[in-house]
Design a binder for these strands. Structure first.
Lengths: 155, 155
DNA sequence: GCGAAACCTGACTGATTTGTCAAGTTTCTT
DNA sequence: AAGAAACTTGACAAATCAGTCAGGTTTCGC
């Protein structure tokens, strides 16, 4: 269970965009410079994020990338899903790679409670806006406490 | 941010061991049969878990594997760490693969709040015992609510 | 118009992760 | 003591992921 490189670097790019004044696009080259990444890699990440509807590109000489919504309206959950995905219902027993014809647990999956945990984590991330990462760490902590108290697992 | 194959299958093996009567080892062959995995792969997973101190092997003709502690005393967090690890403090800025000599955020890392989130998730998993996955899903839900209320991020 | 600056895209290479194989060592049963 | 059942281990092949490259298309400023 790890945060992938793609998620980390993609998020860094988004944080750069989030610090930009409204409506002023930032170039790939500039983001790459600030984050110490190659321009090609930043392009790939931003392309992924644009496909997911999180960023918007402006072509042409004075173009670049913007967030498509305000940092308050973009959640960490969305970002994680755009950049590599999370465990999801669909892939649980279908993508089973074992020897049997299908997952032996298909009728009474002993791991279903684990997926429940995963969904819980995901719903927690859905409640944390990108803007939370712009502020101090205490802010994030308060947000987490909030989700901890209020969220329920959907039965 | 995903649960890896190794984590999933390793956990399945542990769940098989957890259902075994105390002190009766289960053979690799039998676990493999029940889970529809190859014996070689199950061996590899159990070897990893033994190294982490979660399982114990009994050699010889009537041997096999047991849990080294009761399912109540083994947490999901430990299991995840044994089977592929979680993000950890040490690897955050050190393993940075960018072009710069070191992470450009080393002094004021914009992602630190994200690691805080990761640690929070990890501490939540540390509070869920393996035994919780043996019971019904409502049980897991109650456990999660408990951790949601009681845990604090360590500052 | 035309060239420079910027985004767009798919193919490709290297690294990591998955899962297998094969040749051990240990222990029990008879 | 011999053989079978079981764990041990390191090397390997296949699949997936990270990151690069090259050659596009679009737009702006002059």
């Amino acid at each position: 269970m790890r945060i992938t490189a793609q998620e980390e670097y993609g998020l860094r790019c988004l944080l750069q965009l989030a610090q930009q004044p409204e409506g002023e696009p930032l170039t790939v080259r500039e983001i790459a410079r600030r984050e110490g990444l190659s321009a090609a890699y930043v392009e790939k990440l931003l392309h992924l994020l644009s496909r997911a509807g999180l960023t918007r590109s402006v072509r042409g000489q004075s173009g670049g990338y913007c967030l498509s919504r305000s940092p308050q309206q973009i959640s960490l959950g969305e970002i994680i899903r755009a950049l590599g995905g999370f465990v999801s219902d669909a892939e649980i027993c279908n993508q089973f790679t074992g020897n049997l014809d299908c997952c032996v647990h298909v009728n009474n999956c002993g791991l279903r409670p684990l997926w429940r945990v995963a969904f819980y984590i995901q719903s927690m991330l859905d409640r944390i806006p990108l803007s939370a990462l712009l502020h101090d760490e205490q802010k994030v902590e308060r947000d987490l406490m909030e989700t901890g108290r209020s969220s329920r697992l959907i039965v």
